[in-house]
């Protein structure tokens, strides 16, 4: 198969401090001309799966909370399916969008999503990915969006089997990928851009 690349990728640039007016104006109270924000993680009564809240804060190298970031998430539905554009994945939940985004609260820096616990992804009969949620973070001072991946502290038995976690089992701070349980159905996933607790980011 011919894999010759012809064009060069367009380089990334920081989203800057004013990303809200372009991406999620209504969320921060801007009187936008858009009919609605496109943030799309809306659960219907029919959406399958157990409802959870995930939240967190993002810290800079001074351990100060970053308040101007945008967080996007990407996850499977409760049965472990993405809507695929390669094949019609009739197994995927028609009442669940795999994608969502939010800005950090401008006062507290807290970001949060109301979503469902993602299912297990069965790659082959022997290989699995434990329940996880991909996150993508952009902000002023971040030159290129950062990918990280959140796993669940109450899925230890599955986390051990996870193909991606296995690949990086020798890395320090692997616990930075495991969200704490704050209360029933509520998980906290703080992100540290620098320092002892620096979160693992991925080049995927």
């Amino acid at each position: 198969m011919n894999n010759t690349k012809i064009l060069k990728q367009t380089p990334s640039q920081t989203a800057g401090p004013y990303l809200h007016i372009g991406c999620i104006p209504h969320q921060i109270g801007i009187n936008s001309s858009y009919s609605k924000d496109l943030n799309n993680l809306v659960l219907a009564n029919e959406t399958k799966g157990s409802r959870i809240e995930i939240c967190g804060k993002i810290y800079d190298g001074n351990h100060d909370v970053i308040k101007d970031a945008l967080v996007e998430i990407w996850q499977v539905d409760s049965n472990g399916h993405y809507k695929s554009r390669v094949h019609n994945n009739s197994n995927s939940d028609p009442n669940f969008n795999n994608w969502g985004r939010t800005s950090c609260d401008l006062e507290t820096g807290l970001w949060q999503f109301h979503t469902i616990k993602p299912g297990i992804i069965k790659l082959t009969t022997r290989k699995i990915l434990a329940p996880h949620i991909w996150l993508w973070v952009v902000a002023r001072g971040i030159n290129k969006g950062l990918f990280t991946c959140m796993y669940f502290c109450d899925e230890k038995n599955l986390n051990i089997l996870d193909c991606n976690l296995k690949k990086i089992s020798n890395s320090t701070n692997i616990n930075s990928l495991i969200a704490d349980k704050v209360e029933d159905h509520k998980y906290r996933f703080n992100i540290y851009l620098q320092g002892d607790k620096e979160t693992i980011f991925f080049d995927i």
Partner: peptide, 24 residues
Amino acid sequence: SSILRSPKKSPLSIKNIISDLSGH
């Protein structure tokens, strides 16, 4: 602004699985 907001470690490379072709 990049001084305190840049991860010190390079991102870990993992071969993308399944999610690679899907998007909203």
